[in-house]
Simulated scan of single mutants.
Amino acid sequence: MKKVLEVVISSKDSNKDLWSKSIESARNTIHTRDMSDDELIKIAMGSADPISFNTVIKLIYRFTRTNPNGHQGVECFFNSVDESPYSLSQWIEAIEFFSHWLDENKRTTPWPTLLGYLSCCTESPENKNIKHNLKHLLKDMLETYGYEG
């Protein structure tokens, strides 16, 4: 695992120390029964920066603390990505945006509900003829329809 993480960290352009600390903290925080090393690495590789990585890890961690089968949160995340036309990177970017939006509006939402809203965004009629950037699509959906989750 350590060698793979070194490869992940070295593939990132900047903030290598922050990346290292973030990945190490994630591995120490989320038990391997809830997130495998491979899943952790996939999220790190799909994250543009340590901040977006930490946001996703924080949300998954919250789910694992309130659910006896914490791995369901990770499975739900990767299944949502796999069932959409969007990349893991775009999902992570949108999740970070959504998390900030929730914070700014002094709101919280369960992890599966957040993922469900994003999945609905990917299937929206506004996204059928022209594939929009997922973060921008989410922003438009929040402005137009709000969020009840």
Rank of each mutant, 00 (worst) to 15 (best):
R27T: 04
R27F: 03
T29D: 11
T29R: 15
T29H: 02
I30K: 07
H31M: 10
H31E: 12
T32K: 10
T32G: 01
T32Y: 09
T32R: 14
T32A: 13
R33S: 15
R33W: 03
R33C: 05
D34E: 10
S36E: 14
S36D: 08
D37H: 11
D37N: 11
D38S: 06
D38P: 00
L40N: 09
I41R: 04
I41N: 04
I41E: 11
K42Y: 08
I43C: 05
A44E: 04
A44K: 05
A44L: 13
A44P: 10
M45C: 08
G46L: 01
A48W: 00
A48H: 08
D49I: 07
P50C: 08
I51E: 13
I51Q: 03
S52Y: 00
F53Q: 14
F53G: 09
F53R: 12
N54F: 00
N54G: 13
N54Q: 14
N54D: 14
T55Y: 02
I57D: 07
I57A: 11
I57E: 05
K58Y: 02
K58C: 09
K58F: 03
L59C: 11
L59M: 14
I60P: 06
Y61S: 10
Y61M: 02
Y61H: 12
Y61C: 02
Y61D: 03
R62A: 06
R62G: 00
F63Q: 04
F63L: 03
F63A: 03
T64Q: 03
T64M: 01
R65G: 00
R65S: 02
T66E: 06
N67Q: 04
P68Y: 06
N69T: 12
N69W: 01
G70Q: 02
G70N: 05
H71E: 08
Q72T: 07
Q72K: 13
G73N: 04
V74L: 09
E75P: 00
C76H: 15
C76Y: 13
C76M: 13
C76N: 14
F77K: 10
F77C: 04
F78L: 02
F78K: 02
F78D: 08
N79W: 06
N79L: 05
S80G: 09
S80E: 05
S80N: 11
V81A: 01
V81M: 06
V81K: 03
V81R: 01
D82C: 10
D82V: 00
D82E: 15
E83C: 15
S84C: 13
S84M: 10
S84R: 04
S84P: 10
P85L: 05
P85H: 12
P85T: 05
P85Q: 15
P85R: 15
S87L: 13
S87V: 09
S87D: 11
S87F: 09
L88K: 12
L88G: 04
L88P: 09
L88F: 12
L88C: 09
S89I: 02
S89C: 07
S89Q: 08
Q90S: 12
Q90W: 04
Q90G: 03
W91C: 00
W91A: 00
I92S: 03
I92P: 05
E93K: 11
E93P: 00
E93D: 15
A94V: 13
A94Q: 08
I95V: 13
I95T: 10
I95K: 00
I95M: 11
I95A: 06
F97R: 01
F98I: 08
F98N: 04
F98C: 10
F98E: 05
F98L: 12
F98R: 11
